[in-house]
Design a protein around this nucleic acid. Structure first.
Lengths: 226, 226
DNA sequence: AAAATTAAATCAATCGTTTGATTTGATTTT
DNA sequence: AAAATCAAATCAAACGATTGATTTAATTTT
């Protein structure tokens, strides 16, 4: 039910054309407002106003409101993939070597978790906007088949968990453990307000993130010990 | 920004009046549809149609759409409190005894976690509807000051964690640990679709819930071991 | 000049809310 | 007991405002 009909732009070299700048402005505005209020909570007029453009520019550049929403999802997915490229590929290559070194696997696992925390936790950076959008997105009904609904880290974490535990790959138990590891990071994003109140902090600054990271790392190492 | 103006009903004895039945029907319909599509994703006409009533019955019984939403939040909060009354009060009384028995504290902790899982995990029971609504609710902006946004289990979990770890109450670290414990349950509700795909299951049936419970219990015991 | 882009105006549809009239069920008066 | 009275409850209808989308015309870019 998602219309992705988008008029593409003839782009040349690295020079962003006027239309591409307009498209980018709309995308950023939509990213913010969709993330804050959800799909139905924002009108295309609010988005175009926030971007300083006209309503029709949305249907011109993205075909429809659905098309804009989908474009934002694609954009965020690409950003997340890009931001976690280094630790993910490193872990994937480690797995490809068929090494069964538990310590190495644990280090890769912690790197990936650290990367997830950098994406999901901080208050001020741009990644905050990604996380809000993704959370809203995952609650949506119609867009469930979009690949953004799939956790791109899970498979990797489950495999690393299996290696650390010296178990054959892909047992249900390992998948559950991977999910609980993911949840220990996710909770600080989804239940953000609740967590701030519970921890009696006003924002997730560098020190808070560091302390959370310490606890989560400690948790992972303990719960994966035999 | 929430209007809670509600025409109250002259009630007598335990006999539900005609208006109270209508009110309950609207409340249940709203609970379902708000939980599925969020506040802005549902119109009051859809809700009243689903309840088999007229549109204006909403403003009559709840004052406004906001009033209805708030009434649903209140109802769910009461339901959750009621459903977790037993393990919560047991743990609270244990804490009141000033006992420092780590094993007892751990048992109370596991009871509370088990109760949380009963509320949040299953696919078929009514509690599923509560969880969906709460998740949607916590993402909302305007209603953040409602007490439903606060995690009613956190304080208790944090105190029990402190006792298990033989530490003074209320350190930041204990609060973080409590949050990560909560996250291990929460992830199966919030990232529900993603989790189903990752675990390769079609629903959270009794066996799946049992296995998840086993893993989470094991995790908690390990990560709280010194 | 042609194509791409923006602005303004307009569309039918739906939004939350309000209105006035009507029905219901019980209480009070006769 | 019958009639009158009244508050509670429900209804269809309509309100102005806003929704996503489209059309038309003007402007800018290439």
């Amino acid at each position: 039910m998602i219309d992705n009909g988008v008029k593409r732009v003839t782009e040349k070299k690295g020079v962003p054309s006027v239309g591409e700048l307009a498209r980018a402005k709309l995308l950023q505005a939509a990213l913010d407002m969709f993330g804050q209020h959800g799909f139905d909570g924002v009108s295309i007029r609010q988005i175009s106003d926030s971007a300083g453009m006209n309503v029709s520019s949305i249907s011109y550049h993205f075909g429809s409101k659905d098309g804009l929403y989908c474009a934002v999802a694609d954009y965020i997915g690409a950003q997340i993939i890009g931001h976690s490229h280094a630790p993910v590929t490193a872990a994937e290559e480690f797995i490809k070597t068929q090494s069964l070194d538990a310590d190495d696997a644990m280090n890769h696992l912690l790197s990936i978790v650290e990367n997830m925390m950098e994406i999901m936790l901080p208050d001020s950076v741009e990644t905050k906007r990604w996380a809000r959008f993704v959370t809203q997105f995952q609650l949506g009904e119609d867009a469930r088949d979009h690949w953004l609904s799939k956790n791109p880290f899970h498979d990797l974490i489950a495999k690393l968990v299996a290696i650390v535990r010296s178990e054959p790959d892909k047992t249900l138990e390992n998948a559950i453990i991977a999910q609980t590891i993911f949840g220990q990071v996710l909770v600080f994003r989804v239940s953000r307000m609740s967590a701030k109140m519970a921890l009696n902090i006003s924002s997730f600054g560098p020190e808070e993130v560091a302390q959370i990271k310490r606890v989560v790392f400690s948790n992972i190492q303990k719960l994966l010990s035999q």
